[in-house]
Structures are given as C-alpha cells and as structure tokens.
Design a protein around this nucleic acid. Structure first.
Lengths: 142, 142
DNA sequence: CAATAACCAAGCAATTTAGTCGGAATTAAC
DNA sequence: GTTAATTCCGACTAAATTGCTTGGTTATTG
C-alpha cells in the first residue's frame, strides 16, 4: 500500500473541501494549497483530474474555486485514491483480465484477493464525513 | 498495495524452494529461474538479499544451490515482501518517527493504521506451507 | 477593461524499477 | 589439479514513474 504524494495531496484537498462544505461558498485553489501545504500548480493538476472524474465541481473566474460535487458523506477515501493512484492492488495475477495463466501464480491468487477486498472494504466504506467527525490519533484533550 | 516485479519474483522463488523442500537437496538458481520464469541474473540479486536477511541458505560450487533456512511453515509472505519491497505501508504520516506533526494528517492516521495492521495481519500470518497446501483459485475439480 | 481565478499542454529533473554485464571465489567430479 | 558448475559481488544502464514547474489561454466579476 504505497500512497503517492499525488494521492496524499488529493486526499488532503478533498478533506479541505469537506471541512469547508458547510459554508455555501467555493474554496479557491490558493486557500487549499496554503492550508494543506500543497504546491499550487501540482494541486491544479490534481483538482482537474478530480473534476473530470466528477468528484468536485468548480466555478471559474474571479472569486471562483472548487466545491464537492457530493456531500462529504457520499465521498469515500477509496474513490479519491482510485482516481489519483489507480487500482488498490497492482499485480499481474490480479489485474490481468485473463486471471492467472501460470500455475504458480495461482498459489498466491486467493491471498491477493483477500488482501485486496479487505483493503477496499476499509477505504471504500470510509467517507470524508467519517474522517471529519472522528477523534484523531495522537491528540490529547486536557 | 503495489507489489514490484522484484517482490513477486522473490515470492515465487521462495515458493519454489518450499515446493522442493521435501527432497533434501538444494535447488539451483537455474532451476528456480526456469520453473518460475524469472530472469536469472535478477533472481541472483534477489536470492542474495534473501540470504543476507537469513531467509534462505546456499551451498556454493558445483551442484550448489539454495534452500530454505526455516521450514515452509515458518516463513510468511509478509517476511519476504518486507525484505524485497520494504514496509507494507509507505506514507509520511505512518512511517515518520515523529508521528504526524501536521494537524490534518492526523485526520487520516487512524485509517492508515487500520489498513496497515489489517494487511500485515493477513500477510504475516500466511506461511508458504499454507500456500502450498491450499486449493488454488480458478481450478475446477471434476 | 483589469484583476482574479480556473483551465490546459508540455517539459523536466530526480528517483525508482527492472534488469544486464563482467568477473571473482568456491566446490565437486574427473 | 584442471575443469565445469555454481554462488557471490559490484557496477552499470535503459526505461518508466514521480513530483513537480513553465507558460500560457479562457472565463467571470467588479
């Protein structure tokens, strides 16, 4: 499970939009880039692909910006990650349409299936609403 | 969860050694490379790192080869993969010794912890003995 | 019309990946 | 003790991927 910088940035960008979702305005790339510490022009690319995928919407021109296309409870971590980083599990044995031709690959097949479906089970059921309204790790309240 | 060619080859190589484990001889790289379709010189590198890690042993010279340092029921898929591909989960939030300094990263921390420990739970409990004596996927018995 | 923003296409340096090349050291068999 | 088979070792390299940057164009608001 390797998450690229691109993937991490995408998640943080969507998180920011989720946090800003209650106010009825768009959030500019500038704001996202600053509050989430993401290189602006890289973020631009990322938001564009997220838009093409229908996850976010945008308003152009002055006072423009981005917004979530769906509610934060309708967008999962898995969705975002699949758009930016591709399929969760990349292995010839799993991803090839033929399945496994080679005998020995099939020794591993059931294992990868299990790993894949387990991970997908987690990340495709975790929404950004879940993330926002969840106690965060390593935080101590006095 | 991206498994590199190196990682996949390593798993297949160890699998071959596990399959050959009952006969009390070493298996040469040649044999492994041929039966598992692994480029010989690449396999060489891989077996060398597996050896340094103490997973396999070798016998040099004529009629030499490799053997498992432990029984197939003592070697897990996770062990092999960690040697060749590094840690299961690579993300600043998880791997940095500091934990998360940035606030927003911590939104994701519990999620990554869960994914990480779940995947590790699977691959570090699956041994090569398990793989060998398990019905393989996509096989139909008449 | 000027400022502010999203949109778009390319390019690019560094890193990683997936190997290859050439040889040295070791062992068994003859 | 020479030869053939084999592991060991270090360097090299081509291609792909990653993580951006550059330089614009187009749309919207005031």
């Amino acid at each position: 499970m390797k998450i690229s910088a691109k993937g991490e940035y995408a998640l943080r960008a969507v998180l920011q939009l989720a946090l800003d979702h209650h106010r009825q305005e768009v959030t500019s790339m500038q704001e996202i880039a600053q509050s989430q510490e993401i290189p602006l022009k890289f973020l631009e690319q990322i938001l564009l692909t997220l838009k093409k995928a229908g996850l976010v919407g945008s308003k152009r021109g002055n006072a423009g910006g981005y917004y979530l296309a769906k509610g934060p409870d309708q967008i999962t971590v898995g969705e975002v990650l699949r758009i930016t980083d591709g399929p969760v599990m990349t292995l010839a044995c799993i991803s090839s349409p033929m399945g496994c031709e080679r005998q020995t690959r099939c020794f591993f097949h059931p294992l990868w299936q299990e790993v894949n479906s387990t991970v997908e089970g987690i990340i495709f059921s975790t929404t950004f609403a879940d993330l926002c309204g969840r106690p965060r790790g390593y935080m101590y309240y006095i």
